[in-house]
Amino acid sequence: MSGYRLTTVETVREEGSWAFTAREGDEDREVFLVPCADEPGEADDSVDPPVRAWINRCTHEDQRLHREGIGAVTRGGSVVCPKHGSAFDSCEGSCDNGEAAGTTLRSIDVDVRDGAVFLTDDDLTYLYEGLPDDDGDDEGPASSSHLTF
């Protein structure tokens, strides 16, 4: 099995999330990795793969879930939308609360071998680590969530 080596499982666990930009057709896609575990920093090696990759957009509104310098907000095994507070299961991508209830994040295929995470999604070509500059059009969320971080 081939694929582009992205980072390590240890790095994703230590940082809480890790992002990269890839190309799909003629579009750039933001993708982030999160540990598949109940709590940040927790290692669950029984889960295969121990990290998951998701397109970096809330399903309710075009809002980044992972932001440069902050990462993805995770709580209790979920990735939390910073705008509306919808919580997406880190392992499954599904949401059962808030504005995004009943939706699922778009997954990206990754594989873990010897502690390294590889991009194996045939539709994506790795471009670079991190996210593109937002050119000021993604000022951050004007939160309407009842959650406090």
Rank of each mutant, 00 (worst) to 15 (best):
S2Q: 10
G3V: 06
R5N: 05
R5F: 03
L6G: 07
T8E: 02
V9E: 04
E10R: 14
E10H: 13
T11H: 02
V12N: 02
R13K: 05
R13W: 08
E14V: 07
G16F: 10
G16A: 10
S17D: 06
W18F: 15
A19N: 10
G25A: 08
G25R: 09
G25P: 11
G25H: 12
D26I: 06
D26R: 11
D26N: 12
E27F: 12
D28F: 09
D28L: 13
F32Q: 01
F32L: 12
F32I: 02
L33Y: 07
P35N: 08
C36K: 06
C36D: 13
C36E: 09
D38T: 11
G41P: 02
E42M: 11
A43M: 01
D44H: 11
D44F: 07
V47Q: 05
R52L: 00
W54P: 01
I55S: 00
I55R: 07
N56F: 12
N56E: 08
N56A: 06
D62T: 08
Q63W: 13
Q63L: 14
R64W: 14
H66K: 01
G69R: 10
I70Q: 12
G71A: 03
A72R: 07
V73W: 15
R75G: 01
G77A: 04
G77L: 05
G77Q: 04
V80E: 13
V80T: 14
C81H: 09
P82G: 11
P82H: 07
K83H: 14
H84G: 07
G85D: 04
G85C: 06
S86M: 03
S86L: 04
A87D: 05
F88D: 03
D89Y: 06
S90P: 00
G93Y: 09
S94I: 09
S94V: 12
C95H: 05
G98Y: 12
G98C: 11
E99L: 14
A101G: 04
G102F: 15
L105M: 14
I108A: 09
V110W: 05
D111I: 01
D111R: 15
R113T: 11
G115Q: 04
A116H: 14
V117K: 03
V117N: 01
L119S: 09
L119R: 06
T120P: 04
D121N: 04
D122S: 14
Y126K: 00
L127S: 07
Y128C: 04
Y128Q: 02
Y128H: 14
P132V: 05
D133L: 05
D133M: 02
D135W: 13
D138H: 14
D138N: 13
G140R: 04
P141G: 15
P141K: 00
P141T: 03
S143I: 09
S143A: 13
S143V: 06
H146N: 03
L147Q: 08
L147T: 03
F149W: 15
F149L: 12
